[in-house]
């Protein structure tokens, strides 16, 4: 067993490095990042919207200096959009332009299927990139089941065969982060290949630290008040509770307004930054007094 001190150090190193990239990791996130790097496995991050799943990949890229390559998934996403595509419009132009020069078909075919006419999409970019990259596959649950199967293949081998060009193999395995909002269940096979990370709302202390980290120049008092109000709102029975990103937006706005006192009036005017559903808004507006009381103490 090579349980050495450097392991702990490295996890601490990740934590402080991520903090430098403006992302606060708890133990489980830091361990998952560390393991993903050691075992060369993708991370599958799930959790409520706005807790920083996408940010995790972005921050890791800032921390390590590896370039971030992002693949945003949506319904109908296919290989052509994710992996590579022949630029057939340009190919068509090439054929038309060459028509008069009388180039032979063999020559033309070789020209047409060369790097010049290849449009690399995020997955191919991540594989062919000179240096190791961070590949973010965002909202993988939005993609179709067929695409997920295809993704599996790419993620396990990190090689792609392009019939006209041959097989392309990754020189450096990319560091892969998949995120999912759970609009559908991902397949067992995909889960099996990944390290699973469920990111939930942080506890009060960590959230306070996140606010301090991400809203520079916010004073201690205001940060506490913001947190108190947000956490109170989260306890109300709402359709969509304010997430961390919304908390940060609100805190930034208040800090910019330069207000220290969070009173009913101010909350009411800026509430739309926090609560984004009409019915929720009404519910919160009805409780302004209680909210303002949270912010006073």
């Amino acid at each position: 067993m090579t349980a050495d001190v450097t392991g702990t150090d490295r996890i601490e190193h990740i934590k402080s490095g991520m903090k430098g990239a403006e992302y606060l990791c708890d133990d489980s996130i830091a361990t998952a990042l560390y393991l993903a790097g050691q075992l060369n496995k993708p991370i599958l991050a799930e959790g409520p919207a706005g807790v920083g799943k996408t940010d995790l990949a972005k921050a890791y890229s800032r921390f390590t200096g590896m370039p971030l390559i992002r693949l945003q998934c949506y319904e109908g996403l296919d290989e052509a959009k994710a992996l590579y595509e022949w630029n057939y419009k340009k190919q068509l132009l090439k054929i038309q332009a060459d028509r008069d020069e009388g180039t032979s078909w063999e020559q033309l075919e070789d020209d047409l299927f060369s790097d010049e006419f290849l449009l690399p999409r995020p997955l191919l970019k991540a594989i062919t990139n000179q240096d190791q990259s961070v590949l973010l596959v965002d909202e993988v649950d939005k993609a179709d089941v067929e695409f997920e199967a295809f993704l599996l293949e790419v993620l396990s081998d990190f090689q792609v065969s392009i019939p006209e060009l041959g097989t392309v193999k990754a020189t450096h395995l990319p560091f892969v982060v998949l995120t999912s909002n759970r609009t559908r269940d991902l397949s067992e096979a995909l889960r099996r290949r990944c390290l699973y990370l469920f990111i939930d709302f942080p506890d009060a202390a960590r959230e306070l630290e996140i606010i301090r980290l991400r809203v520079p120049g916010i004073n201690e008092e205001l940060a506490r008040r913001v947190l108190a109000v947000v956490r109170y709102i989260r306890q109300m029975d709402l359709k969509k509770v304010p997430s961390i990103s919304e908390t940060l937006d609100w805190a930034t706005a208040l800090a910019m307004l330069g207000r220290d006192v969070v009173d009913e009036n101010l909350i009411s005017k800026t509430l739309s930054l926090l609560v984004k559903e009409q019915k929720d808004l009404e519910k919160v507006q009805a409780n302004l007094k209680a909210l303002a009381r949270q912010a006073q103490d």
Binding site: T2, A3, S28, T31, L35, Q38, L44, L195, Y196
Partner: peptide
């Protein structure tokens, strides 16, 4: 995976041990 993970994770603290197992075994 879990066994591999334990080889690279320091086993000094219980939380580290727990999160290593958790990340590799829990998928839902």
């Amino acid at each position: 995976d879990a066994c591999e993970a334990l080889k690279v994770v320091p086993l000094e603290t219980a939380t580290m041990f727990r999160s290593a197992l958790c990340a590799t075994l829990v998928k839902n």
